[in-house]
């Protein structure tokens, strides 16, 4: 069984295995297919039209499935690899070991935002940005430049306390847990992290930065923690909602998986610290 660990606790060997597996998927072209898929959904998901991957209830199960598929590809390259998660409430500065040269590399240089160290630096020759929205083929970041602070634990706890999964109109204007976690409303969690990293992470082709997977693995963990805190709550809407993926509707692009299939992560992996139902919360 796959165990997803906090990136901060990985050994040097685990970091090397992860980055090597990512580079292997880049080499074979598999990596860029994921970037293309994500960008396709981000450009087509709209508040008033069909929406699947973002700004909708299925934001969470869609990304859970997307990460599962990416993780399965990593494991074809190296069966020992699992997706690590980045708890950005704890590792919240550019001095975190996440951004060291032996893992993801650091922020971009001032002149053009280009990442200059680590295995994904353009100069290392193994990680060209091919699926892109502009002419630049090098990985870019500007950690903390566009927004000063990553979300805090207190901000996360306030969102985890919201008892209702999602609400009409089931989009970026919704109240409820999903949209507050996604960040279109309120303190802004998931969206703000994309902006804080900057570079490709702030764009529709955000999976070009390998931190995308670790960010979403933590967003996914927060969904599991919310479920543990609210055992009486479930995915909404249940049925009959136009333009939106109901509990038992299939999700594009796979068309063989529903939000209901994705509710229990323990069918697929566990976390190094499994969310515990907090009796004190209720």
């Amino acid at each position: 069984m796959t165990v997803r660990k906090n990136q901060a606790s990985l050994t040097s060997e685990e970091k090397r295995a992860f980055t090597n597996a990512v580079l292997e998927l880049k080499r074979t072209g598999v990596y860029d297919r994921f970037v293309t898929t994500h960008n396709g959904f981000i450009m087509s998901d709209t508040d008033s039209g069909d929406r699947v991957g973002h700004r909708s209830p299925s934001f969470l199960p869609w990304h859970r499935r997307f990460l599962l598929e990416f993780e399965a590809e990593l494991q074809k390259a190296d069966a020992s690899v699992a997706l690590p998660y980045w708890d950005w409430t704890a590792d919240r500065t550019s001095r975190s070991s996440l951004w060291a040269a032996d893992f993801l590399g650091g922020t971009g240089r001032a002149r053009d935002g280009q990442v200059m160290d680590g295995p994904f630096a353009y100069s290392a020759g193994k990680f060209p940005v091919n699926v892109r929205v502009d002419g630049r083929a090098y990985l870019r970041r500007s950690l903390g430049a566009s927004v000063a602070e990553l979300p805090t634990k207190a901000e996360v706890d306030a969102v985890l306390a919201m008892p209702v999964y999602d609400m009409a109109p089931w989009n970026s204007a919704s109240n409820g847990f999903r949209n507050h976690l996604e960040g279109w409303r309120g303190a802004n969690l998931h969206n703000r992290v994309h902006v804080w990293v900057g570079g490709q992470m702030a764009t529709g082709v955000s999976p070009n930065d390998p931190v995308f997977w670790m960010h979403h693995a933590f967003v996914d963990k927060l969904w599991a923690e919310w479920q543990a805190r609210h055992p009486q709550s479930t995915y909404l809407p249940a049925a009959g909602t136009s333009n939106v993926v109901d509990l038992n509707d299939t999700m594009r692009p796979w068309n063989d998986v529903t939000p209901a299939d994705m509710l229990d992560h323990r069918k697929f992996y566990t976390f190094d610290t499994e969310p515990a139902a907090a009796a004190s919360q209720r």
């Binding site: 297919r33 502009d134 002419g135």
Partner: peptide, 12 residues
């Protein structure tokens, strides 16, 4: 320079 944007890409 902005790249031409492509509609819905392939599946992963």
């Amino acid at each position: 320079v902005l790249a031409p944007f492509s509609p819905m890409g392939g599946t992963a």
